[in-house]
Nucleic acid binder design. Sequence first.
DNA 1: TAGTGGTCTAGACCACTGG
DNA 2: CAGTGGTCTAGACCACTAA
Lengths: 247, 247
Amino acid sequence: MPQLRQQPRYLQLAQTLINEIEDGRYPIGTLLPTEFELCDQFGASRFTVREAIKRLVQSGMVSRQAGVGTRVLGLSRPAAYRQVMEGLSDLQQYTNETSLTIIARETIALDGPLSEQVGATSGQTWLHLMALRRAAGTSPISFSDIYLHPAFRSLKLDDDVGDVPIFSRIEEQFGERVAEVRQHIEAVAIPAPIARLLETKTGAPGLRLTRQYLNARGEVVEMAINTHPADRYSYSQTFRRDPVSGL
Amino acid sequence: MPQLRQQPRYLQLAQTLINEIEDGRYPIGTLLPTEFELCDQFGASRFTVREAIKRLVQSGMVSRQAGVGTRVLGLSRPAAYRQVMEGLSDLQQYTNETSLTIIARETIALDGPLSEQVGATSGQTWLHLMALRRAAGTSPISFSDIYLHPAFRSLKLDDDVGDVPIFSRIEEQFGERVAEVRQHIEAVAIPAPIARLLETKTGAPGLRLTRQYLNARGEVVEMAINTHPADRYSYSQTFRRDPVSGL
DNA sequence: TAGTGGTCTAGACCACTGG
DNA sequence: CAGTGGTCTAGACCACTAA
């Protein structure tokens, strides 16, 4: 079959299938025709049909399973946007050179609400660090409470941590990979002890970013609570419509 | 060639190429061998070689151009994490049913710092809305300043907007697609006029989310400043290591 | 014009699922 | 067991690039 159109055959085919799913020809939960049936229907090779279905999989409309078929999951997601981010270090948005200094370290048995907040099993003994982040010479940018899973209590860490995130030290020294990060952002009135360390007024507005770092099994390996005075830090993100699949 | 290994041939091949790039066999900026050369070197079909290279493209290590070749862009990105997000409406994190009510609307000529903040050309006349978001019966969750590009001043909008985001109204009525969203998060001391509307104390800590919605040409079509009392709202995100390519 | 990657065909064998 | 999607081969023509 010659290709005298602008768009490749598999993209047209993908659009056709999307339209038919949206028109209700293949209701949610049902199976699409098999690859061979689609080959017949459209007079295309299996390669072309598979390339088309690949687009539907990428957009989350269908799922596939060998031995079963291609199941309709839902209507076309309105748009897939993704955050522009190249790695975990993009979570740490500190424009100028900053460095983290540990001001206290202890092991602490977590229980009650704190163990819940950290994501720890009650009674486990975690390593607890307190640290300040500074840019050369100025008032601190943030105060951090950091909790490390018992398995990583032996993490080697200078008091002057520098600019490398803690979790990459864990990945280096223990080979434990971070599979997921949960980030929670809220405004708080800065409490007195933290205000003193940050050299600001008690009750002043602050931005608090709480992050849980999880491994592949869903266990929390690190948890950090970062509190910033409102006037010294803010957080930016950019989301772009996902150009994947060209649809 | 039989497939008696666990991992498919193209993934092994992809890993081989990644290793060789990281070892400096193919320096950054140079061209990889052509598909046919790789077919010879590895005794694989073009399909297999292409599937392998596809993984490198997806991970951003190489780019391809017909007539030119496969160019090495850089070393393996340490990890691609992506936010779990299905659409723009995931930016609006209001757990319970909430609804937006417009309390004021005006057209306003933007200039000076405000035009810069909005992303407008100085002197343009934008539509300015003020609105409150509520969950049934309680104090307001947020106050919003919303600015709409002159082209969309005629947007039809009830005072009771309900739960549909404004930008989807723009997409519906004008066919203008949002290609990018920039979000800025900061803590503020809530100023007096907003505090009155939000039924909270002046100077209390608040979470402010400022969003710019851009079209494909990079023009701002909508800009919104949302201010929330600290105790009534917080923002959560989850990032997962991108499982793409299975490497 | 020769060579690249992009698209496409017509086959094949495999692991896995379900009846 | 028959049928599914996953992998893989060996071809082919095309649009595009660079010399």
